[in-house]
Design a protein around this nucleic acid. Structure first.
Lengths: 375, 375
DNA sequence: CTGTTAGCGCATTCAC
DNA sequence: GTGAATGCGCTAACAG
C-alpha cells in the first residue's frame, strides 16, 4: 500500500523560498502576489506531465530518477506544497486522526496530546483535537466535527462519556479506540488499563506503613475508569484482609475542588483516616491543599496517594506519591491502534485490545501512620 | 460575504441516523456498508439539483423555503455531512486556523487552547494545533504543516521564537497574529501585553510589605516576553527609588527546575532576598518547592510572586500570589485578530495591534518582610 | 429562483 | 516508464 510521504526531499534542507522571490528574503515584501503554485505549474517548468510530478512527489519507485530529480529541483525552487485538500479528495485519505479528550485543561491530557502529536508528525498525520468539557452537546459537536473533516480514525480518551453518541462514528466505519470499554467489536479497539496493579501496590505500601484507616476519594462514579479504580481499591483492601469502612470512601469528582471538599468531610469523621488515596492527582492536590488549611502536616499526620502521575505531582510540597499511568504510553497505544486499523487490508472481525499497566511511584507524601490505632 | 455555516438545522435535533438504518440504532450493526452520501444523492432524493442542495445547505436566502425544507429533510434522514475537503478545494477556504504554542505541557497553554477552541467552534473553524517544543526543527515542521493544510491564519503564541522561520507564512500572505512582536506590518497583527502594569503592582505590593531585598527570577532572556518582564521589574523598582542589586536578578528558564535552581542560588547570597518575583508561575512553583526543601516557610520567611496566574497557582500551598495575564482573553484576542483579517475586504496597509493588561492577584504567598533590614 | 456546467488540485486509470 | 484523460465532492458562474 502506498502512502503519501509528504514532501521531504531526502535530507535536503527545508525550503521556504518562493518562486522568483529568493532575493527578497529578509526584506519587507511588497511585490506582486503569488499565483498559488499547483502541480501543473511544476509540470510545465520541469517539462514533464502532471502525472509524473505526482509520481515523483509520492516517491513512486518506477519513475525515472532523472525526471524525479528534475521535478524535485523545481519543487524546491518554487517552495511548492501539495494541496492536502485536493489530495484528500481524490485519495479518500485525509491523514487526520481525531483526538477527543474531556478537557485539555486537566493536567492529565496535555502530555497525551503532546505525545500523540509527536507520533502523528512522524507518520505524517494531523490531529483534530476536540474537548467535550463534560458536556453532551460538546460531545455531539466533537463527533460532528470529526465526521465533517473526514478523520480516518478517532481516539476517545474521555474515560467514559456516553458512547451512544458515538454510533455515528460506528456507522461510518471509522476506526475507533477507547479506553476501558468493554469487549472490542469490529473497528473498535480498546486500551485496557490495569488499575489493580498500581492500586494494590499503593494499598500494600500504606498497610506496610501501619495505616489502618485508609480512605479513598473516588471520581465521578458514572465514569467507568473511576468506578474501576474504586473497585480495585476495595478489592486490594480485601486481599490483605483489611476491613473496609464505607464512610472512608467518599465520592469526589476528579477536580481539586472535589479533593478539598473530600478532605473537609473526612476530617470530621469519628475515625479519621491516617491515609487518603485519591482517584486522580488533581483530587490529591486538592486534598493536600486543604490539609494545609487545616494545619495537618503531610506526611506526618496524613499520608496521601494520587493517581495518574501528572507532571506537576513531583513539584508539590511535599512531592506526591502517586500511581503512574504513563501518558506517553497511552498516547502511543492509541495512535498505534488507529494506525493498525487504518492500514489493515481485510476488515478484521473484531478490534484489538491493548494493555496498559499502572505502577506506584514513591515520593514524599506518605509516611508511617502517626500513632498506633489503639493507644 | 457568505460563510459556510455548517449543517445545523434550525434548532433541530442532531441526527446521526443513517439512511435506512434508523431501526438499527442501539443494535449491533452488521448490515451492508454505506456508499458514502454525496450531494448528488441528496439532490436525487430531494428531487432537486445539486446546486439547490448546496444552496440550501449553505443557507443561501434566495432558495424557496419549500425546497429547502425538502432538502433538509433528506439531509437529516440520511445523516449527510458535506465533505469539507471538497468544499475547501473549490472555495479556497479551509476554515482552519493554525495555533502554534511552544509546548502544550506548559500549564499556561491548555487554557488558551481550550478558549481558542471554544471560540473556533462557535465560528465553525477548526484548529490545527502544533507545538514547537523549543526546537527549531519542530518550528519548521509546524510552519510546513500549516502551509500544507492551507490554514487561513496562524496564531503564534510562542512568546518569541525565531520569526525568520515564519517568512514562509508571510510570503504566502497568511494572516498572522503574534504576541509581543514589534510594529505590526501588513497581515500581521500583534497582541501587546502590558507587563508593566501588573509588575508595578507587585513591586509596590512588596515594597509596602517592607521588603527591601526583592529578587527576580527571569525567563530565557532571548524571549522577548521574558526580557520585557525583567525590564518592567527593574523599571518598577526605579520608579519607587529602590536600588537594584544586580545579584538579585538571576536567569531562569521558565521551568520549575529553573525555579529550583534559582532559589538555591539566591539562598546562598550574602544579602538574601526576602521576596522573590518570578517571570512565570512555573518558576515560582519551583521556587516554592525548593524553599520547602530548605525549610524556609512561605510567606513568613520568604514572599514569592508568580506571573501568568496558571490555574494551578491557587492550589499551591500556600496559594500563590501572582500576576494575571488572562489566558481566555489572550485566546479571544488572537482569534479575533485572525478572523478580522480573514474577513477583511481590502488588504489593509498594516496589521492591527491589540492590548492585553496584566494585574496582580493577591493570595497567600506574600507577607510582611521577616524583620527590619537593619536590626 | 433553479438547473446545467465547469472547474478547484491532485492521483490514477488507461493507452502508448 | 510516461502522458492524456477522468473524476473525487463540492461551489460558483451562467443560462434559463
Amino acid at each position: 500500500m502506498r502512502q503519501h510521504r509528504g514532501l521531504h526531499p531526502q535530507n535536503g534542507p527545508f525550503v521556504i523560498g518562493v518562486a522568483g522571490m529568493e532575493y527578497n528574503i529578509g526584506q519587507t515584501f511588497t511585490g506582486p502576489r503569488f499565483t498559488s503554485m499547483d502541480i501543473r505549474e511544476i509540470a510545465k517548468r520541469a517539462k514533464v506531465s502532471t502525472a509524473t510530478v505526482s509520481r515523483a512527489i509520492n516517491r513512486v519507485p518506477t519513475v525515472d530518477p532523472q525526471l524525479a530529480k528534475r521535478v524535485w529541483r523545481v519543487v524546491e525552487e518554487l517552495g511548492y506544497y501539495p494541496n492536502t485538500q485536493a489530495r484528500a479528495l481524490v485519495s479518500g485519505k485525509t491523514r487526520i486522526f481525531g483526538l477527543i479528550v474531556s478537557e485539555i485543561t486537566n493536567p492529565f491530557f496535555p502530555e497525551i496530546v503532546q505525545s500523540f502529536e509527536d507520533i502523528a508528525v512522524q507518520h505524517n498525520y494531523e490531529i483534530l483535537l476536540t474537548s467535550t468539557v463534560h458536556d453532551p452537546k460538546r460531545m455531539e459537536m466533537s463527533v460532528r466535527r470529526m465526521l465533517e473533516r473526514r478523520v480516518e480514525g478517532v481516539a476517545i480518551l474521555t474515560f467514559g462519556m456516553e458512547e451512544a453518541l458515538l454510533e455515528g462514528l460506528r456507522f461510518r466505519k471509522v476506526p475507533l479506540v477507547f479506553v476501558d470499554v468493554a469487549p472490542p467489536v469490529a473497528r473498535i479497539s480498546n486500551i485496557k488499563i490495569n488499575y489493580g496493579r498500581g492500586i494494590r501496590q499503593a494499598v500494600q505500601h500504606l498497610a506496610a506503613l501501619r495505616h489502618e484507616q485508609i480512605a479513598f476519594v473516588t471520581g465521578p462514579l458514572n465514569l467507568r475508569s473511576a468506578k474501576a479504580r474504586k473497585d480495585a481499591f476495595e478489592e486490594s483492601l480485601r486481599e490483605i484482609g483489611m476491613r473496609l469502612d464505607p464512610e472512608l470512601v467518599v465520592e469526589g469528582d476528579h477536580t481539586m475542588e472535589g479533593g478539598i471538599r473530600a478532605l473537609a468531610r473526612l476530617v470530621e469523621l469519628p475515625n479519621r483516616p491516617t491515609a487518603i488515596m485519591c482517584s486522580n492527582d488533581l483530587t490529591a492536590i486538592g486534598v493536600m491543599r486543604e490539609a494545609y488549611e487545616y494545619g495537618i502536616p503531610i506526611p506526618q499526620q496524613l499520608s496521601v496517594v494520587g493517581f495518574d502521575d501528572v507532571r506537576m505531582a513531583q513539584f508539590m510540597t511535599p512531592p506526591l506519591t502517586t500511581i503512574q499511568m504513563s501518558q506517553t504510553e497511552l498516547a502511543r497505544l492509541a495512535f498505534k491502534a488507529l494506525l493498525t486499523e487504518v492500514e489493515r487490508e481485510s476488515p478484521a472481525e473484531h478490534g484489538t485490545e491493548y494493555l496498559l499497566d499502572t505502577d506506584l511511584v514513591l515520593r514524599k507524601s506518605t509516611a508511617l501512620a502517626p500513632r498506633p490505632s489503639k493507644p
